[in-house]
């Protein structure tokens, strides 16, 4: 069985078909790219898959379980985590607390145990700290644990968002333009990290990139969106040679 199965997904915003007839099948362990010019509907696909928007048509399944119409929190619990194109961190909380929030459903103690400080509070908090530190280390953020999220430089904020999403132990990770605003060196490094976590954390990754050259480095397969519809799909190298795709990117 495929990990993710998306069937004829579509949404209309007051007459605008932002996404139409979107189909996608992801196998476990894949690193898949979703590309297309600005306004093509890429972020909208993510918003549909994470329950932020309810689809007008179609449906999707994770591990055979239908998730259409579920709330964002339920979808995350089912195994899909994401990052946002315009970074959404908990800006008044520390880097450590941001990641510990990702562990919220994985490591638990009750509100009462927290207020009265029963042993389970201490043991669980310790485990949370260890796990969060380990995740932050992967993204080289372990020196910044006490920094407020809003005080991090831009590139690190993007990495922190990925670490937070990974803390929820998702089966599928959706990254919305993770390299936006980074310089070429940082971008290259980040792409290597993404590949590293895919290999070492038993993850499947769906990644949006605006810049075509970036995806070609790490994604085995890609889909190109244009005006909400699929323009091309297949192995990255082939798709990028497709004249239609080149035209869509360069404009006519």
């Amino acid at each position: 069985m495929s990990l993710l199965e998306v069937k004829n997904l579509g949404i209309v915003f007051g007459g605008l078909h932002a996404v139409e007839d979107f189909n996608l099948t992801l196998e476990k362990g894949e690193l898949y790219g979703l590309i297309g010019p600005n306004g093509a509907g890429k972020t909208t696909v993510f918003n549909l898959l994470t329950g932020v928007y309810k689809p007008t048509t179609g449906t999707f399944f994770l591990d055979g379980k239908e998730l259409k119409g579920k709330k964002p929190a339920e979808i995350n619990k089912a195994g899909i985590a994401r990052t946002f194109q315009n970074i959404r961190l908990f800006s008044n909380l520390s880097v450590l607390d941001n990641v510990k929030l990702g562990l919220h459903n994985g490591m638990k103690y009750s509100t009462f145990e927290g207020i009265v400080r029963l042993p389970r509070y201490f043991s669980t908090e310790r485990k949370m700290n260890e796990r969060a530190h380990a995740l932050l280390k992967v993204f080289e953020l372990d020196d910044d644990v006490d920094t407020l999220a809003s005080n991090l430089p831009y590139g690190k904020q993007r990495k922190l968002e990925i670490a937070r999403a990974m803390a929820t132990e998702p089966k599928l990770l959706l990254l919305d333009e993770p390299a936006a605003g980074m310089n070429p060196n940082e971008t290259k490094e980040l792409m290597q990290t993404i590949r590293f976590v895919r290999d070492n954390f038993d993850l499947t990754v769906l990644l949006i990139e605006h810049d075509m050259s970036l995806v070609s480095g790490i994604c085995e397969n890609i889909t190109v969106l244009n005006f909400g519809t699929e323009l091309a799909k297949g192995p990255t190298a082939e798709v990028l040679k497709n004249p239609e795709v080149i035209k869509a990117y360069l404009g006519d």
């Binding site: 964002p72 946002f84 919220h104 929820t168």
Partner: peptide, 13 residues
């Protein structure tokens, strides 16, 4: 308080 949409996205009720 800091970001409701992000909180939902990591499974917080």
């Amino acid at each position: 308080r800091d970001n409701r949409i992000a909180a939902e996205s990591i499974g917080i009720d």
